[in-house]
């Protein structure tokens, strides 16, 4: 029995700093602010207040767009990297590993240097008369999409590469012998096999963008309606903490992330079932 004592430090830390805080978050989201009674008041409030509605919509929109664009670029990059020579593949993967660490506040600053109001590319755009660069507003929703896409690409490629190494060269040879054209090969053989990997990556990217905070905070501060920013703003400062609204917003964020994972699980199961039948 005394041997279980070794488990105790772990249990204490995990309960105090992970499990209890999470439970408390859930409880406070269902506790009405004024009366202190249990109820749905906080959820009704966030789904009827334009600012919070907008935050949820913006967060989902930015996460979806950045995940989709990141995934498309990563798909081609992973495919070409997979088929490239050993040396190229090694160098490219190393670069991805390196640059996937360039995130958060440093990344936000780098984009300000590039595309901020007096950024290098902005000036170049003005000189060369490229309206997209000259008038680009980094401190907006579109600016965030651009920066988010940047950090999605290396992550997505690194996540997709293992799926591509699961594609056997014999499959393509067999397809060619059976006179399948390249499009048939991709649509009927490669993509169905890659699908679980693609969807899994998409859900990771989506959750990753939803929960991203540092980059957004450094670029737009609190001047843009975004779920992660709204949640944290409820807990800033020692005096006034709005646990009720903050808790409900946090539960919405958790809910969205769980949803992304669940959708992915569902698709993955279906696709593996389909493969087993074939």
């Amino acid at each position: 029995m005394t041997e279980f004592l070794a488990f105790l430090p772990f249990l204490v830390i995990v309960v105090c700093y992970e499990l209890l805080p999470l439970c408390q978050l859930a409880v406070s989201s269902f506790t009405e602010k004024t009366s202190g009674k249990p109820g749905f008041e906080n959820y009704i409030k966030i789904f009827t207040t334009p600012l919070y509605q907008q935050s949820i919509v913006n967060s989902v929109r930015i996460s979806l767009i950045s995940a989709a664009v990141g995934l498309v670029v990563a798909f081609f990059a992973a495919d070409l990297c997979h088929e490239a020579k050993e040396g190229t593949r090694r160098r490219f993967t190393m670069l991805l590993n390196m640059m996937s660490n360039f995130s958060g506040v440093p990344l936000a600053f780098a984009f300000m240097v590039l595309m901020g109001n007096t950024g290098v590319l902005t000036l170049l755009g003005k000189k060369a008369g490229i309206p997209f660069l000259a008038n680009f507003n980094l401190y907006s929703g579109n600016g965030l999409v651009l920066v988010y896409i940047y950090f999605q690409i290396p992550l997505a490629t690194l996540l997709l590469l293992p799926s591509f190494s699961g594609l056997r060269p014999e499959w393509r040879e067999a397809a060619v012998i059976l006179k399948a054209d390249p499009l048939d090969y991709w649509l009927r053989i490669a993509i169905p096999n890659l699908l679980p990997g693609i969807l899994g990556t998409l859900s990771v990217l989506f959750a990753n963008a939803l929960a991203a905070f540092a980059t957004a905070y450094a670029i737009v501060m609190n001047n843009y309606a975004l779920l992660a920013l709204q949640i944290t703003s409820k807990y800033k400062g020692d005096v006034e903490i709005d646990k009720a609204t903050g808790g409900a917003l946090a539960m919405v964020l958790i809910g969205l992330m769980v949803l992304a994972t669940a959708v992915n699980d569902c698709f993955t199961k279906k696709s593996t079932q389909g493969r087993r039948l074939v």
């Binding site: 700093y17 992970e18 209890l20 805080p21 999470l22 408390q24 978050l25 406070s28 959750a207 990753n208 929960a211 905070f213 540092a214 992660a228 949640i231 944290t232 409820k234 807990y235 020692d238 903490i241 646990k243 903050g246 808790g247 946090a250 964020l253 958790i254 992330m257 994972t261």
Partner: peptide, 19 residues
């Protein structure tokens, strides 16, 4: 769990309970 939660939820849940 912390891998899925990431920083925002982790930080505010701890502030929420102890601050």
């Amino acid at each position: 769990i912390p891998y899925a939660l990431q920083g925002v939820i982790l930080s505010i849940s701890i502030i929420s309970i102890y601050s």
